[in-house]
Simulated scan of single mutants.
Amino acid sequence: MLHEQALQTAGATPALAPPPNFTGRWRNQMNSFMDLAITGSSVTGLYNSASSSGGAPVQGVINGVTIGDLIAFTVLWLPSGSITSWTGQLVEEGGVQTIRTLWHLVTNIPDDNEDDKFWMSTWAGADEFVR
């Protein structure tokens, strides 16, 4: 499906409920954690990956947006220059707040290898974050 078709469908969704409070520390299933701050609809913070770079912890700056119970944020991983973006929604089950996300990570493929290896630059997966 084209993005524009998906956006047309999304535009028909009902009005958003009052936003939840995303501020604070969230931890995923890999024991990585992020500390989020919310100002208006802007998301900022730090992401601490417990399993990146051969197992050594790696930290990256978070920039993103939120509206209602939806959130999207991106981390630029330095010095590698890889980028990960997460999009998701906050849900509550049994009194536990969880941000369920899908993510894409992109890495650079050298220009002379792009024709053959371009799709090797993009990884995808899912994360769930709890307080």
Rank of each mutant, 00 (worst) to 15 (best):
Q5N: 15
Q5C: 10
Q8S: 12
Q8G: 03
Q8C: 05
G11Q: 10
A12G: 09
A12I: 03
T13I: 05
A15M: 09
A15Q: 11
L16G: 05
A17R: 07
A17K: 11
P18G: 09
P18M: 07
P18K: 07
N21R: 13
N21E: 14
N21P: 05
T23V: 13
G24W: 07
R27L: 11
N28R: 03
Q29C: 06
S32K: 05
F33D: 11
M34I: 13
M34F: 01
L36P: 01
L36G: 00
A37N: 13
I38D: 03
I38G: 02
S42N: 14
V43M: 02
T44H: 05
T44I: 08
T44F: 04
G45W: 00
L46I: 15
Y47S: 03
Y47T: 00
N48K: 12
S49F: 13
A50D: 10
S52V: 06
G54A: 10
G54I: 08
V61Y: 05
V61S: 13
V61D: 14
N63I: 05
G64H: 01
V65H: 00
T66N: 03
T66Q: 12
I67F: 07
L70A: 13
A72Q: 14
F73I: 02
F73Y: 14
F73P: 00
F73T: 00
V75T: 00
L76F: 12
W77Y: 04
W77L: 01
L78E: 12
L78M: 15
P79L: 09
S82T: 15
I83A: 00
I83T: 04
T84C: 03
L90K: 14
L90P: 00
V91W: 00
G94Y: 05
V96W: 06
V96N: 07
V96T: 15
Q97D: 12
T98D: 02
T98K: 14
T101S: 12
L102T: 11
H104V: 15
H104T: 14
T107S: 11
P110A: 08
D112C: 06
D112E: 14
D115L: 08
D115T: 07
K117C: 10
K117Q: 13
K117D: 15
F118Y: 14
W119V: 10
M120Y: 09
M120K: 14
S121P: 04
T122G: 08
A124Y: 10
A124I: 09
A124T: 13
A126S: 15
R131E: 06
